[in-house]
Nucleic acid binder design. Structure first.
Lengths: 257, 257
DNA sequence: GGCGGCAACTGGCTTAAGCCAGCTTCGATG
DNA sequence: CATCGAAGCTGGCTTAAGCCAGTTGCCGCC
């Protein structure tokens, strides 16, 4: 044991040894870690100290506890690659699918989307700004949940100026039938030509943990998407919250001069 | 107290009440939370139970403990917006600066970059793949650390095929003098024309926590960047690890057909 | 062979008590 | 007025013990 290790409190030292075992591959995806009681005996320490060590690994996203079963190395999962191409007309025309469905099917899973509400609201300030609206102007708010094999992957809250969707089922209906929302915008005279995507990452709120079934130690990616037509008009803003253990972004694009 | 709250263990209920106070704005950025001992007295509970509650908020990125001082609401900081424009020749020519420096100065802070090593290595598999190399072919590896006002913001490990930088200080020198690495690539016959950026988010490793001074409950954004020239040749791959509390990405781009 | 119950495993969470170490504030002294 | 030391605040961490609740495996019985 190195000098640095010697000075560490036992909970951190135990965590360090378990982490090293995971990193070396001695403990692989899905493998069970020693129990709290087992570690306590093995390291001649209190059960709570061992439990603290396991908690450190969970907070780092390396392990996941299951009540009554044990603590397991968290599975590293293939990420869904969400990219610019998901908005392309070619992708839409070839498959008739929305960007999310394309990617889920690419992974051999069954996509399923659920619109949970359609309301008329005043937009958040950052949304109003991107839509070029006065904050008092109301917009249509659609809340969509995205699943793969019944597993929640992300949630998207879409804001659309009422003028864009007057008379369209987009303004009133949860169920829109098959096809992409962007085909509908095109039919309404708003063909998507440019997008802006602003990304950040943070820890999920308890509501997001619950709604998206996010394991401990897993952050979310927050993606603020703006759609613009050929004239540069923003006609839709969507705030996505994506589980970071199953979602990634993948952009390929020219460098502007 | 609602039925749901009534059934929650005390540590979660205390956390919930503190979280609500933060969300309501009753506790603002930088405000001190009640101490462990104070909460224990107030809720007639054990100090460790109160401590557990504060730990929940730290894990969510809402609070930060300081040894001997207290627990404080974590500051929400303005994000540096890293985007496609950071690679543009116009931005480079107008400022003579690298993309990182442009953004730090935009925030009124002092940028500072430090190359910590230049070595020749065999690339990781995912890097070899993106550079179109056999994994046995060696590449130049440069490790750069990026600071704003002496605060570490991100680290980037750059891989460049040796053929691209033969005879260039890029292959051998830590200090490159003023100007952008992409100007040097242009001078070497590799003008950047396209980029690919693959993004994900995760919790940082202990080494990253230490090196980047990441507060608890703050994830990192991992950005795998590939630079391509006009012929579609990849000439550089950089893996960035960015503190998610101070970095965000911001892309505006045409939708491809 | 299937089913149910029980024992033994597991994690979830609390308690009371304690000691260590960092930081802040206040009072005494020069 | 400045400095230093002590007291009192703070968080870091452990201990021993305990009880609750979920899961699993095994054994007995039908």
């Amino acid at each position: 044991m190195s000098d640095q290790q010697e000075r560490q409190p036992p909970s951190r030292r135990i965590a360090e040894e378990l982490r090293a075992a995971i990193m070396r591959g001695d403990l692989g995806d899905g493998d069970q870690l020693p129990s709290e009681r087992d570690l306590a005996a093995r390291y001649a320490t209190a059960r709570n100290t061992a439990r603290e060590a396991l908690g450190i690994l969970q907070a780092e996203g390396l392990a996941q506890a299951q009540h009554g079963r044990g603590v397991f190395v968290r599975l590293r999962r293939p990420l869904m690659r969400m990219g610019r191409d998901r908005y392309s007309r070619r992708a839409r025309n070839e498959t008739g699918l929305s960007p999310f469905r394309i990617e889920v099917e690419r992974q051999g899973r069954t996509p399923h989307t659920e619109c949970r509400s359609v309301t008329t609201v005043q937009p958040p300030a950052e949304v109003a700004q991107r839509l070029g609206l006065d904050a008092r102007q109301e917009v249509i708010r659609r809340e969509n949940w995205y699943f793969a094999d019944d597993e929640p992957m992300q949630v998207g809250v879409t804001y659309i100026p009422t003028t864009v969707v007057e008379g369209s089922p987009l303004a009133t209906e949860k169920k829109l039938g098959r096809g992409s929302i962007y085909q509908r915008f095109e039919d309404l005279g708003y063909p998507i030509a440019r997008i802006r995507e602003e990304l950040s990452a943070r820890m999920p709120t308890p509501e997001e943990v619950k709604g998206l079934s996010i394991p401990p130690g897993v952050p979310v990616i927050e993606l603020l998407h703006t759609s613009l037509d050929g004239d540069g008009r923003a006609f839709e803003v969507t705030r996505f919250v994506m589980r970071a253990d199953v979602n990634g972004l993948d952009y390929e694009m020219p460098v502007e001069d």
